[in-house]
Nucleic acid binder design. Structure first.
Lengths: 271, 271
DNA sequence: CGCGGAATTGAAAATACTCAAAATTAGTGG
DNA sequence: CCACTAATTTTGAGTATTTTCAATTCCGCG
């Protein structure tokens, strides 16, 4: 994989701190790895953070089976991560945005399990994992936060499993939009108006649907006045309706083979 | 949730070490959390391990939204973990067996994100997470192994996403069987002959299919002489064929919306 | 021996796919 | 900046995989 030369131009929010800006001067500090750390600890973290890397649109950040050395924190831009099956077909496992951590799937085997590609020109901080683990011994707060981050990735993936295993096309797509909306809101952007950084093809792949299905879904949602679309710019006109759809609280028939389970202190009851 | 009274009867492989047997005397030592630890370190780990808990078939180990305190290592038995959607329908996120760790999804939010139910009478070791994190500061080997475990869970879930998003029914089911086979083999059991601990309904739910589809698939596989089934006892007669099916290396048409991607150092090429 | 849950099998229906064509958009070079 | 070409998206018609509904059958258990 190519690595970009070290050029720090146009990195939003970090320009004023000079050349070797670390977490200390980074706008993503509050949503990224150093979340909740004291100034002194951030300084220690900065010392191990490797270079920043520019990844141009459609460039790979890492490939399956490559040896694992670094985690990557996204400074700006968007990525998709995906697995390839034996036939060379992809299954997108997620879309990542600023502040999110890439590469955690590689820790287990010492080599990357998936692939990561930039959806637009992006920048990441390289975090040498071995050095990060050294830090953990001295910084329990950092360690705890790291565990929370990995756990959140597990939760996220379980939610996708729920989506793929349990939802119909319309519900999947609504859930997808609501998820993006919430994440942009958490970053301080509009919850109702944002750009889709990925193609329709990618959306379909991620949701286990075809590109044609995504296109039809968009048309239908548009026609119901639930949203407006212009190219990749989406405006949610009825976020509440979409949330309800995503939650499955509509009268439509549910997806395959679903048991209704009533939580109980002593066992599992099927209603 | 009920907890079982502390009775240590019939715990295979750990009886001789007396009442408060820890990892030191446990048969699962080599595949469980203490994997690769020195004797002294195992002793330290033993000190924080909580009680063992018996979970009867169909009993919950934990429920969604319950506050998180412990991870659980399965000593023997099988569990299923699942999410419930807003309508009370479940999506099974995994089946777990001896040596595997439960509860990692709860670290992120401090409360459980999923539910865990015993598929048969089982026993787990309770591992207070707060105390485990204290140990991490002193035991880098343990910490590293824990990270590998969480990462493996992430990989596993990505594989399920691939299955649910990219595979047809037949391929999903073959992949399911091959996966069980490999896991039993890793525990030293037969790779070709094992019991399904879960109902057809559970299999279907996990694979995003109906119980009827599972039943038909079983009949079809049986008729092709790829396997034998008697109740829940399965014998794989053509493991290689099933592996090939699972890998997608058959001439059958592939699932929805799949791009063929050719790995490249500089970008993504669509063949 | 009979009841009840689980599994199997069949027939009809539906959601989402495939194939095909047209329309739109993005990218490139003059 | 415009024109041209390639890529992406949209839309339509027909099809297929898998579901749904229904009826048996099988099996464990009292």
């Amino acid at each position: 994989m190519m690595s970009q030369p070290l050029q720090y131009h146009a990195a939003p929010g970090a320009q004023l701190t000079g050349f070797k800006a670390g977490c200390a001067g980074c706008g993503m500090q509050r949503v990224c790895l150093p979340m909740g750390l004291e100034q002194a600890d951030i300084g220690q973290l900065d010392e191990i953070i490797g270079r920043r890397r520019r990844i141009a649109r459609d460039q790979r950040l890492y490939n399956m089976d490559e040896p694992f050395a670094n985690l990557y924190a996204i400074r700006f831009g968007h990525f998709k991560t995906f697995l390839l099956n034996a036939g060379g077909e992809q299954q997108i496992s997620g879309f990542q945005m600023a502040g999110e951590l890439l590469g955690m799937d590689a820790i287990g085997a010492g080599r990357h399990h998936g692939n990561a590609v930039a959806l637009e020109d992006s920048e990441v901080c390289e975090i040498p994992f071995a050095r990060l683990e050294e830090l953990f011994g001295r910084m329990p707060t950092l360690l705890h936060h790291f565990h929370r981050t990995m756990s959140q990735e597990i939760m996220r993936e379980q939610n996708v499993m729920l989506l793929l295993g349990n939802m119909r096309a319309e519900q999947r797509f609504a859930a997808f939009l609501v998820n993006l909306s919430a994440r942009y809101a958490a970053l301080g952007y509009s919850a109702t108006s944002f750009q889709l950084r990925m193609s329709r093809e990618d959306i379909g792949n991620y949701l286990g649907l075809t590109i044609e299905s995504i296109s039809r879904l968009l048309s239908r949602f548009k026609q119901q006045h639930w949203l407006r679309v212009d190219k990749r710019e989406v405006t949610l006109l009825e976020p509440a309706t979409l949330k309800a759809l995503a939650a499955g609280s509509d009268s439509a028939p549910q997806a395959p083979g679903r048991l209704r389970v009533v939580a109980s202190a002593t066992g599992t009851l099927v209603a």
